[in-house]
Amino acid sequence: MHFRDFIPSLVGLALALAGFLLRQKARKKLSAASAAKAPAKWLKRRKTLWTAISVIGCWIFIVNILTLVFGDLPHEELTVSIIPPRAEFSILGYTPSTTMLVGWGVMAALIVIAVLLRIFVIPRFESVPRGVQNALEAVVELAEGYSSSKTVYLGQPMFGYIFTVGAVLIGFAFAELFGFRSPSSDITFTLALSLISFVMANWYGIRQRSVRGRLKSLANPSPLLMPIRIVTDLANPVSMACRLFGNTVSGMIVMDLVYSFLGSAAVGIPSVLGLYFNVFAALVQAFIFITLTLININEATTE
């Protein structure tokens, strides 16, 4: 290894240290100025500038050190597989896909959290909430209010289902942040989830209003339009499945592009972008999925 290889990381370290020291100096000056009178704008700006330089220096240093230790990442062509890869082992002659394993992991984590909350937190509830109890009550109240505001009859029983779906989808979003492939980027999972909501809407619709009433609601504006209404109803689960799948996959592809573009410099930047592309988009989609489920059920059960 030659000394020349160390120069970029040394430059980064020097930048980081210089930026940090100058920032401390600027901060002292700023606090002295603000004690006397209103601080000048350029002092604040200078402090921000030194902070940015220090952060950039840190980034250069870390990237170069990582490149030195692990070597350059090989550049490979970007490939996207719509069907997720299979696991390397098989259970009873059946090979599960990797997304399914991730899904089981997330579900296990959620179950453990729920059991821990049930054992340690819920028996100690007080009439004046504080801490964890406060947060739990706020979340449950929000979901309950939302589900009963969207549906006329089934707000209370639907609340448990939509809370479960929301928790699972959010868990998957956070699993994607850790580098696993999210199960909602597997079209079989999203189709299963939307079929559940389709069957649920029809089941509750028939139970609430009998088969005759359900058929009557399908022939709503005029019986002539009934085939179109039936096709629309049947297309609903497909559209919900494609929506969730497409959004998750597009976020995944964007993140893959970012990783392949940055190569070995992918330190820190992907985590900031991932917060938007993997987490925020997935949260909005979870919200939309829940809302559409509630709207379908409401449409099936009310006159």
């Binding site: 494609c242 929506r243 497409g246 597009s250 909005v284 939309i288």
Partner: peptide
């Protein structure tokens, strides 16, 4: 607005999914 945007986005998402299917399978 969120609801409407997500529903509007569905059309472009369908196009995107079909494009993906044509490209990669």
């Amino acid at each position: 607005l969120m609801m409407g945007l997500a529903l509007t986005e569905a059309s472009s998402i369908y196009g995107f999914v079909i494009a993906l299917i044509m490209l990669f399978s």
